[in-house]
């Protein structure tokens, strides 16, 4: 049997009241800890890892993991309370079958306290029992209507998680969901800002390149633009990329503008 829990190792058996009090305290500390990490530049993996660690401390579970669906709907392990290979394999397996996949698909809690040959997921059940986890529970991670993934709990005895534990696990999963959604929003914002910046500077570089070609070949802006487009087409390159290469000097102006033409009207009284 694997039992990775870290509390309750005091030697003396604590009383029921002591345990309840300790758990209440730990729960409060955990939520404060998680909320604290959600300020500003938080690392979502770090938050989820702390969450899985606290989950096994607080609940009657031996191991916990968080699986999130990627853009293709594949479940990926984002954090786990332990790096044991068997545990990670159990997470992986669930892209084919298992409580997490069912929980992700249905958005509901999926539990099975007595895994065996006649469980709904024969392959997963066999692996889980062999790894020392005869009971499993998957809590959906939801944000509004979206299901993001699941909090997966493994129990080292063939018993169901008590309802209070399930409720607490759902609360932890909800906090994790907020962290995940916030992180996704920040990432998306950075990508969109980058796209706009890139488009803005690209657009500007084209105007600059027009000016460079116009001056070099002594043509007007329309002709300069035509030469830029012609070069880009002939060499199968993007207009922006040609313009930026001109600006950096990677591309010599002559290759785009043609030979340099001297000024036709020299300044000064000589003209």
């Amino acid at each position: 049997m694997n039992d990775d829990r870290t509390i309750g190792d005091t030697g003396r058996q604590p009383s029921v009241e002591e345990r309840a009090l300790r758990r209440e305290e730990l729960t409060a500390i955990t939520f404060v800890e998680i909320v604290d990490t959600l300020v500003d530049d938080f690392d979502v993996i770090e938050v989820l890892t702390v969450l899985t660690a606290r989950t096994v401390e607080l609940l009657a579970a031996s191991a916990a993991g968080i699986l999130l669906a990627d853009e293709h709907g594949h479940l990926r392990v984002m954090a786990a309370s332990s790096e044991k290979i068997q545990l990670l394999e159990l997470f992986q397996l669930q892209n084919d079958e298992g409580p997490c996949l069912d929980s992700y698909r249905t958005g509901t809690v999926v539990a099975h306290p007595t895994l065996g040959p006649d469980s709904p997921w024969p392959r997963f059940a066999a692996e889980s029992v062999a790894s020392g986890y005869p009971s499993v529970c998957a809590i959906p991670m939801r944000f509004k209507e979206r299901v993001l993934g699941c909090l997966n709990l493994f129990i080292s005895r063939p018993v169901a998680l008590p309802p209070t534990d399930v409720a607490l696990a759902q609360a932890l999963a909800d906090v994790a969901s907020i962290a995940v959604v916030q992180d996704q929003a920040t990432r998306l914002a950075a990508v969109r800002e980058g796209n706009l910046q890139h488009a803005l500077t690209s657009r500007i570089s084209i105007e600059q390149a027009k000016g460079m070609v116009a001056e070099y070949a002594r043509v007007d802006m329309d002709q300069a633009f035509a030469r830029l487009r012609q070069f880009a087409r002939n060499h199968n390159r993007g207009l922006t990329e040609v313009a930026q290469s001109l600006a950096t000097g990677e591309l010599v102006i002559e290759s785009v503008a043609g030979p340099r033409r001297p000024r036709t009207v020299p300044p000064g009284p000589a003209s």
């Binding site: 027009k210 000016g211 070609v213 116009a214 001056e215 070099y216």
Partner: peptide, 12 residues
């Protein structure tokens, strides 16, 4: 646009 075109001219 003219500002950026001009900067290209001056660059050359």
């Amino acid at each position: 646009a003219e500002v950026y075109q001009a900067s290209g001219i001056v660059a050359v």
